[in-house]
């Protein structure tokens, strides 16, 4: 009812206003999510009192100045954000936020997916997770050791292939998830095909398309900028909690396999976190054993997808041949 509050929206090209939002979030102790495309702000006079942003299909950076809470500003911000998303044709939406306003967001039609120790939470405005779990349930296999691997494989190397072979050997059945988000050099479609071809000789593996619920821009936004050494531990935790509490139970997963990363601090930390969260005996779902598999080396160097991309850039196909399977090689040559 306060007519002195005005709302406006703008996109990331509006540097001055974006800067103001960043400053506002920092003053109330929140991180500025760097990848926001569209912003909505509320101002009283010239003072910024609330904001929110849209990054792909994820609302983030939703905040209200402490002394303006309880006025319903979040509802106005949410209305405008939803309008922006809908007008861009984005219908299935997530909220990535601190868990202070779960009830308010529920009143906006969102359902809680996971609340991570009251530090961070993820919600969605549809039944997609339930539907996805139903689809996964149909892929359930019997066995004592039901293994899982999540990989981006950008692109699929002999290292990936070795990891899958080892994991399959140790499992009665292995579920392999391919990160679906198209934020890598190689498109999902290609990554997925190369993996399928590269593991076709293994009989006890199902290759699954990833989803918004497994290393995606919704569950784990900083994964895709890990090269910059900036995996956010909270994000990693949220992603692993969704995996443990929702996806793993649907498939009866008992183990998760990861490659060791002798040189990469970021991945090492991530693996350590994974152990802590998936193996925690006090979780609300069954613990999952994390198994690290020693990375395969070639001529004293670990095989990595980034090495493949590097060799590809300088067109050293003879070198490439030594570290990718024939199926991947064929694809790279035809690029």
């Amino acid at each position: 009812m306060d007519s002195s509050v005005s709302f406006s929206d703008f996109d990331f090209t509006n540097a001055r206003r974006v800067k103001r939002v960043e400053k506002f979030l920092n003053t109330i102790g929140l991180d500025f999510p760097s990848s926001i495309e569209n912003f909505v702000i509320a101002k009283d006079g010239n003072e910024l009192i609330a904001c929110g942003g849209l990054d792909g299909k994820v609302f983030k950076g939703i905040a209200v100045a402490p002394r303006r809470r309880g006025e319903g500003l979040i509802l106005s911000i949410m209305t405008r954000l939803i309008n922006i998303a809908y007008s861009k044709g984005i219908k299935d939406l997530f909220i990535f936020s601190t868990p202070n306003n779960i009830e308010l967001f529920e009143g906006c039609g969102f359902k809680l997916i996971e609340n991570c120790d009251n530090e961070i939470m993820l919600m969605e405005n549809n039944d997609n997770l339930a539907n996805y779990k139903n689809i996964l349930t149909k892929e359930r296999r019997d066995g004592n050791v039901i293994g899982s691997i999540v990989m981006n494989a950008n692109p699929f190397t002999l290292g990936h292939q070795y990891l899958v072979e080892q994991a399959a050997k140790k499992s009665d059945w292995l579920h392999l998830f391919v990160v679906k988000e198209d934020l890598s050099e190689f498109k999902f479609k290609d990554r997925f095909e190369l993996i399928k071809k590269g593991v076709s000789h293994i009989s006890n593996v199902t290759v699954h398309e990833g989803s918004d619920y497994i290393i995606s821009n919704a569950t784990f936004p900083t994964y895709f900028i890990k090269d910059k050494g900036r995996i956010n531990e909270l994000h990693a935790k949220l992603d692993l909690m969704v995996f443990r509490n929702h996806l793993a139970p649907a498939l009866g997963i008992t183990h998760r396999f990861v490659g060791t990363e002798p040189y990469c601090v970021v991945t090492n930390n991530y693996n350590k976190n994974m152990k802590k969260i998936l193996e925690d005996p006090d979780g609300k779902s069954n613990p999952i054993e994390v198994v690290e598999i020693q990375r395969v080396e070639k001529e004293g160097r670990a095989i990595s997808a980034s090495r493949v991309r590097e060799l590809l850039r300088v067109k050293k196909f003879d070198e490439l041949e030594k570290i990718v399977p024939a199926t991947t090689m064929k694809f790279l040559k035809n690029m």
Binding site: L75, S76, T79, I82, G107, C108
Partner: peptide, 9 residues
């Protein structure tokens, strides 16, 4: 509509 009080979306 909107999600604001007294309204419907």
């Amino acid at each position: 509509g909107t999600l604001e009080s007294s309204d419907a979306f």
